Deep mutational scan, measured.
Amino acid sequence: MKVIFLKDVKGKGKKGEIKNVADGYARNFLFKQGLAIEATPANLKALE
Results as ranks from 00 to 15, higher is better:
16 G>T: 02
30 L>N: 00
35 L>K: 04
7 K>R: 14
20 N>L: 10
29 F>K: 09
18 I>A: 02
9 V>S: 02
31 F>W: 03
15 K>W: 05
25 Y>K: 08
26 A>G: 05
35 L>I: 08
18 I>K: 03
7 K>D: 09
6 L>V: 04
39 A>F: 07
1 M>W: 07
22 A>W: 13
32 K>A: 14
24 G>V: 12
42 A>D: 13
20 N>E: 15
27 R>Q: 10
44 L>P: 02
26 A>L: 12
3 V>T: 00
44 L>D: 04
14 K>V: 10
1 M>N: 05
39 A>M: 06
12 K>R: 13
37 I>E: 06
5 F>M: 04
27 R>G: 04
27 R>K: 14
8 D>R: 06
48 E>M: 12
28 N>P: 01
46 A>Q: 13
44 L>V: 08
35 L>N: 03
28 N>W: 10
41 P>G: 08
14 K>S: 10
23 D>M: 15
28 N>H: 13
17 E>T: 06
30 L>D: 01
26 A>S: 05
31 F>T: 04
5 F>I: 01
45 K>S: 13
5 F>V: 00
38 E>D: 05
38 E>P: 10
7 K>G: 05
31 F>E: 03
37 I>L: 09
7 K>A: 12
22 A>T: 12
4 I>G: 00
15 K>I: 10
31 F>D: 01
12 K>W: 15
32 K>S: 11
2 K>S: 12
1 M>K: 10
45 K>H: 10
33 Q>Y: 15
25 Y>S: 06
33 Q>H: 15
13 G>D: 02
34 G>E: 05
7 K>Q: 13
6 L>K: 02
40 T>Y: 03
10 K>A: 14
6 L>F: 03
15 K>V: 09
16 G>D: 06
37 I>R: 04
37 I>A: 08
17 E>R: 02
6 L>M: 08
8 D>V: 04
32 K>F: 08
48 E>Y: 13
46 A>R: 09
20 N>T: 15
5 F>K: 00
19 K>G: 07
1 M>T: 13
11 G>Y: 08
37 I>M: 11
15 K>F: 06
38 E>N: 04
21 V>K: 00
41 P>R: 10
22 A>P: 13
41 P>S: 10
24 G>R: 12
41 P>M: 11
4 I>A: 02
11 G>M: 06
31 F>A: 02
30 L>T: 00
